[in-house]
Amino acid sequence: MTFHTIQIITAGFFILAGLFFFTTATLGLLRFPDFYCRLHATGKGDTLGTLLMIVGFMIYEGFHLLSLKFILIPLFLFMASPTVTHSIGRAGVTCDVEPWEKKEQSGTEETE
């Protein structure tokens, strides 16, 4: 097993892990009952998914000046994604959107 093989396998592992978090973010967007809960799924899953996929690309590409450019994207996203989530959430609070509450009786699983 050469160094190159290990590099490609590690990169593939990181990219697949990123895809897993993208998938959970999408499923959360579909399944959660109101938009505050959907923000949980998109705001967190996409951020970590992007970070893991970029790390995978950097390992695949090897380290040179392009890697620094790759770092710029998660660096920006780690500031931007919470800002976006917070600003949508605050818009919801300002517009008096009632958050979804768990009901006592069963039958609350339907998600529109």
Partner: peptide, 16 residues
């Protein structure tokens, strides 16, 4: 969050 999403019963209890 992944565990919450993949759980078929969706065991969430959101509150502010």
């Amino acid at each position: 969050v992944a565990r919450l999403v993949l759980d078929p019963k969706l065991p969430i209890n959101p509150k502010i």
